[in-house]
Amino acid sequence: MIDYDYLRPDNLEEALRLLKEYGPKAAIIAGGTDVMVKIRNTRKAPEVLVSIRGLNDLRYIDKAGDYRIGALTTHRMLEESDLVKTELSALYDGASKVGSVQVRNVATIGGNICNAAPSADTAGPLLVLDAVVFMEGPDGKRSVPITEFFTGTYRTVLKREEVLTEIRIPGEMEEFGSAYWKHSRRKAMNLPILGIAVSVKMDDQIISDVRIGLTVAAPTPVRAYKAEDFLKGRPLSDEALSEAGRIAASTECCSLRDSLRGEAWYRAEIIETYVPRMARLAAERISKRRSK
C-alpha cells in the first residue's frame, strides 16, 4: 500500500524547516513527473512528500546582467520565453523537447537536473551555457557550477535538506550562439539516445570560444573539453569541425556504452555527425542575432 503525508509549504523558509524536521523520511516533490512515476512503478514512497509547487517566488525567467531562472520554472515557460529562444537557444531546444505539452506544463527545470537522469534534456544546454546552480539549506546558501553538480547517474551534490533555488547563466553568454540536438527515434515522447549541445563565440569566421556538452555519453552529462581545446582559434571549417566531432566521440571525452536504446558505435557516429551540425547552427544563430 502506498502511503505518505503530503505537505504543501508556501514559502522557502517553511519548506526548509519541514525538510529539516523530517530528515531522511522526507523527499521534495516539484512538478512530480519523475517522483509520481517512480512511486507508481516501485510501489514505494517516502513517508513525507514536501511539495514545493506553492513556492511561486521560484518561478521566473529574467535577465539583469546575468540570466536568472527560478528552479520551479516549467519547461513550458522556457519554451514560450522569447528571451530563452533567442539568447539561450540551446535551452529552448532542450526544454521544448521534454515529453509532451502535458508534461512540460508541470515539469520543472529544477526537477530535471535534480533528478539527474543521464538523459535529462536541459543538462546539455546548461553545460554549454556555463550555468551555475544555487541551493539553499539549513547551513545557508551555496552555489556550484553545473560541471560540478552531477556526481553520478541520478546523483548530485545536493544535500537531502537543501532546495535548489535558481539557475544562473552569466550575462557574457549573450555573445555565444547555442544549439542542442536530442537524438531519438521518434519526434516526441521519447528519451534521447544521445544529446549534443554546442555553444560558440565567433570572431568573424574564427571560433574564439566554444563549449560542447554531451548527455547519455557517460554516467553524467559531460563537457568534451579536449574537443573544445582543439576547436578554439580555428575557422568554422568542415575539417576542423569533423576533427572536433571525432575527438568528442573518443574515450578522451566520453565513455559510450551499448544500451537498449543504442549501441556505442552508433552513439559515436551520432556525436561525429552532430557536433559539427550543432556548431554550425549555433554560429548561424549568433550571426543572425548580431546582424539585427
Binding site: Y6, R8, I29, G32, T33, M36, V37, L49, S51, R53, R76, V101, Q102, V103, N105, V106
Partner: peptide
C-alpha cells in the same frame, strides 16, 4: 487553462 496528465497530479495540488 493548461492541459495536464491527471494521473500524475497529486490531489492536494488541486486545492
Amino acid at each position: 487553462g493548461q492541459a495536464i496528465n491527471s494521473c500524475l497530479c497529486p490531489i492536494p495540488e488541486v486545492e
